[in-house]
Write a protein that binds this DNA or RNA. Sequence first.
DNA 1: TAATTATAATTGTCTATACATTCAAACTTT
DNA 2: AAAGTTTGAATGTATAGACAATTATAATTA
Lengths: 252, 252
Amino acid sequence: MVIHKEVIDKSSVIPIYYQLFKLIEEQIRRGDLKPGESLPTEHEISSRFEISRMTVRRAISELVAAGMVYAQQGRGTFVATPKLDNIIFELNDFNEEIKKRGLNYKTTLLEAKIIRANTELKAKFQVDEEHKRFLYFRTVLSAEDERLSYEVKYTIYSKSKPILESELKDPSLPSLIVAHTEYMPMSSKKVLQVAACTEEEAVILGIAPNSPVFLIEQTIYDQDLKTVGWSKSVYRGDRYKLTSYDGWYKKD
Amino acid sequence: MVIHKEVIDKSSVIPIYYQLFKLIEEQIRRGDLKPGESLPTEHEISSRFEISRMTVRRAISELVAAGMVYAQQGRGTFVATPKLDNIIFELNDFNEEIKKRGLNYKTTLLEAKIIRANTELKAKFQVDEEHKRFLYFRTVLSAEDERLSYEVKYTIYSKSKPILESELKDPSLPSLIVAHTEYMPMSSKKVLQVAACTEEEAVILGIAPNSPVFLIEQTIYDQDLKTVGWSKSVYRGDRYKLTSYDGWYKKD
DNA sequence: TAATTATAATTGTCTATACATTCAAACTTT
DNA sequence: AAAGTTTGAATGTATAGACAATTATAATTA
């Protein structure tokens, strides 16, 4: 971790702990501190910046609260690994149920291929090179031989690495991005809508055409908010629901 | 705030700040500390329990993080008011848009009456008294004369207080509960589903029958998880979507 | 060699203190 | 009476240090 002493201004009105928090956050976002790497010890940061250990702890505890690092007593403090769920929006009322009952739960690959950029993809990924290639996946999720959801995924294919067997088995978009592009997935946007399913989707999922379904589009970005992955999922409306518990207290 | 000194055990393996955190949390949940009320000052807590102010601050900062309390420099620390959103699940992509553009946004009351308990309500609210009365509201939300969502609300009617003009205008379930029952809304469960809308709903919302809609059922509980309010909302599928930004870092 | 025991390093908790910042109320001046 | 000023009280930030708890490593012992 390369930290320059000058960047912390003790006489500033901005609290020291906050300057340090921002400093480390920046290093993580820029990739100078990679997931799994350890931060310097509290003592080391403390003496390097000539600030007290409690102030360092304050900064680190903010990072912990933000989920960017985790601390282990006796070992050290480490950068957390970015975690982007693919099964989105915690649409898992049904998925949880399946797991709890130990039911048969599998992902079936319908199609996997490398395709050339078309107008739609070029727009989505903000690229204009005609030759650009993309990875394209179509999968179906099913439990006990009942089909539950259908998903289409795209990501850039720039490393020309072969697609592994394991990737075909259960292709997760973030891991595909890591494997086949130079980009690092950092954040995502998910949009959930309701829709009447199309003829094609109805056939795939074994439901009546125009049945109500959840439609989730996920866009994955790197640290510069460049689009590096995109997926669209269709979930059977009669098999999924979204539950949230909330409340207690919030500030006015 | 009634705090007994004995409840904090300095020699316990459980950290003092955590004991204090739990202690104050309990007082808030029990209603001994009511929303808006101020906590004793840090100095006062510190001297009353004979612990350092920094330890008190640690406990309070946990409460702040949990949203149960908020601190104001120069004034004090106050219990936050319970906040249960009625427009649920942040289904507000569209609502936000409306507000941003300053569009005409209004709630229309279709029906408001006091009804007797029927079988369905008795089951939902876990009551068996035949005579029990309930408040019943039916409202429509619209913007620029386009109807967007339809909502049915129920709560217990036990105080026999008249329904105020202001309540008819934009009846919020949590505030109705506070006004007309002895209970205090504390938490809520929301279930979001997709559905094909019924004939009745189609007419009310001005859409085609069987159009896909969001269906949200909200149950409101008091601190003992007793059901004190229930609502069902239907949102036009072509007008609402749910967006969530997430990611960055999470601990493994 | 394998198991056990010390040791050092690292984070976790806690104290006591100092000064800064903000807010509200009391006081003073106009 | 209104406006400005002072003052006290509350939270916010920061320090230095002590000891506890946990982990990994090194040293010792069986």
